[in-house]
């Protein structure tokens, strides 16, 4: 369970998050929606441990552990996965090698045995196939020369292989066509389990047609101004953010 209380964060002394309260129980998918600049991506970064952001107040715990005290890789080992809005390119680093190194680092941290190259490739190929990704994506360098859609699918592939307990999807739907959107949604749906939860950050409602959230929260000016069921997403799509923000003000 992810529990966030009064979380405040700033970058270069400029406050972005101004007191977030949010609880995501195990097994649930919550959507965070909001206008540009509302702090959605900052929330994703702060939860995953990006150092440029200063946490100025509040707490965040995951399954009882103090998330904010952990290094990024410790959070990853604890099961936090961030699907990046703009996945990073790693020239010369082979995708399969990267994934295997990451998976084994996480398995090591969890006291599990490491996978050898053969075991790993079997797993990776199966997942790639399930996500309708060409196998040569595994052989290419991490995100280098990938199209926008390929990058996003690569994030979903990584998620499928690393099997997180909490997936944070930072606008993974942006720039995707409808088929790719479905693949991303299916990727997350496939992970659905009583001990899996997800925080889906999105600007639009369309991803949520395929990935139905248990709760929807609206983030504006660094605060959650409204929460509701899946119907809230449709309402936002119809009336726009301005009205909701104005109502809350």
């Amino acid at each position: 369970m992810l529990e966030i209380r009064g979380l405040a964060a700033s970058i270069n002394d400029k406050p972005i998050l101004k007191g977030i309260d949010l609880t995501v129980p195990e097994g649930e998918i919550h959507a965070i929606m909001g206008p540009n600049g509302s702090g959605k991506s900052t929330l994703a970064y702060v939860l995953s441990g990006r150092e440029e952001f200063d946490v100025t107040g509040g707490t965040a715990s995951f399954n009882g552990a103090d998330l904010l005290a952990m290094e990024p890789e410790e959070r990853a080992a604890a099961g936090v996965f961030l699907a990046f809005q703009a996945p990073i390119e790693l020239p010369g680093v082979n995708n399969a090698n990267f994934l295997r190194t990451a998976l084994n680092a996480i398995r090591r941290a969890r006291g599990e045995s490491e996978l050898d190259a053969v075991q790993f490739l079997k797993l990776a190929r199966a997942e790639a196939k399930r996500l309708a990704m060409p196998e040569d994506m595994l052989k290419r360098n991490v995100n280098v020369g990938f199209s926008g859609g390929e990058k996003k699918r690569n994030e979903v592939l990584q998620m499928a292989i690393l099997r997180p307990k909490l997936a944070i999807l930072d606008e993974t739907d942006s720039g995707l066509d409808i088929d790719a959107l479905k693949i991303v949604a299916d990727g997350v749906n496939a992970l659905r389990a009583p001990d899996f939860s997800a925080l889906v950050i999105t600007h639009h409602q369309r991803l949520l047609d395929h990935l139905v959230p248990d709760r929807v929260h609206v983030l504006a000016h660094g605060r959650i101004i409204r929460s509701g069921g899946p119907e809230l997403a449709r309402e936002l799509e119809k009336s726009g953010y301005a009205q909701v923000v104005a109502e809350a003000a």
Binding site: G49, R50, P72, E73, I88, F98, A102, L103, A105
Partner: peptide, 17 residues
Amino acid sequence: AEDQLFYCRQRGLTEED
């Protein structure tokens, strides 16, 4: 780049790795 390092660490790699 900082974001390359962060990306790797988010996937569970130590800074040195």
